[in-house]
Amino acid sequence: MHMADALISPAVGGAMWAATAGVAAYSIKKVQDGLDQKKIPLMGVMGAFIFAAQMINFSIPGTGSSGHLGGGLILAILLGPYAGFLTMASILTIQALFFADGGLLALGSNIFNLGFFTCFLAYPLIYKKIVGKEYSAKRSMIASMVTAVVGLQMGAFGVVLETVFSGKTELPFNAFVLMMQPIHLAIGIVEGLITAAVVSFVWKARPEILEKAALNQALGSLSIKKVMIGLAVMAVFTGAVLSWFASSHPDGLEWSMFKTSGREELETTDPTHEKLAALQEKTAFLPDYGFKASGNEVQTEEQSENWPAVSGGTTVSGLVGGLMTLLLAAFMGFVINMRNKTGKKA
């Protein structure tokens, strides 16, 4: 469920970066105030653990397919919300840099979608409430499931909002939501199952690890006031957000995409254009972003900046100029390469 640079607008990316930076700064302060230096290497090594765990395929009983771990909830349970969020931020940063997952500008959104909702909303308000003070396998299982599902639902909805507000997509809000949320329900259940399995194993083998994690959080247990601050931060981002989106892993996002596209292909086989228009009008969240009635005018207006007056003549110029640009870029690369080589010989 990664947002990607190709699909995010500077406004959305910037707003999400600001929100993420704010939450991160607050979390760092909290972790430092906790005076538990031991946590720093634990966060570092746990981040590496989640990174590795994300690469493992978990076969989902009765389906023949396999699922993956996100890890946000495990981090929150073992490290607490602040350290958990920071650790998630590290993991996503490394993925963005080394695997081009998402990209630099979309990184803020990704950290927020995958870190904030689970660590600061779902975990303290659901997981801790259900688990309470006495651990039991059953309660832990239920808590993990519900928390993972809710956290991922919020994250998925974040993606939808970021996408729709951005206005760069022609994807209708309703169709998108209807696909994203159920898919992430499935992903959330898998996440919950894996988390519960790990937590129950750790509880049986080394309960002190979980006890300690709970103790360390005493300082950082969230008050409603802090949650409200978090929600305010969220409001800031939702208010500012606009964008396109994409994902780089074969996870729920593409699924939604494929499903949506499949459905629409069916629709388009319908010969009547009006029907489609009607459907899209129905599903359009914001009329402007929904369907463009065979909109040559709208388009030329929108395109005017980069493609002034779409007429035959300028198109030819554009294509020729584009080709020239490509050749020039290639030529530059070639020249530098040649200089590199002669430089080596010399």
Binding site: I40, G44, V45, A48, F51, L86, S90, I94
Partner: peptide, 13 residues
């Protein structure tokens, strides 16, 4: 502290 933690994650990946 965040930078150190990021580097530790990278180191142990």
């Amino acid at each position: 502290i965040f930078v150190l933690q990021l580097m530790l994650t990278y180191r142990y990946i």
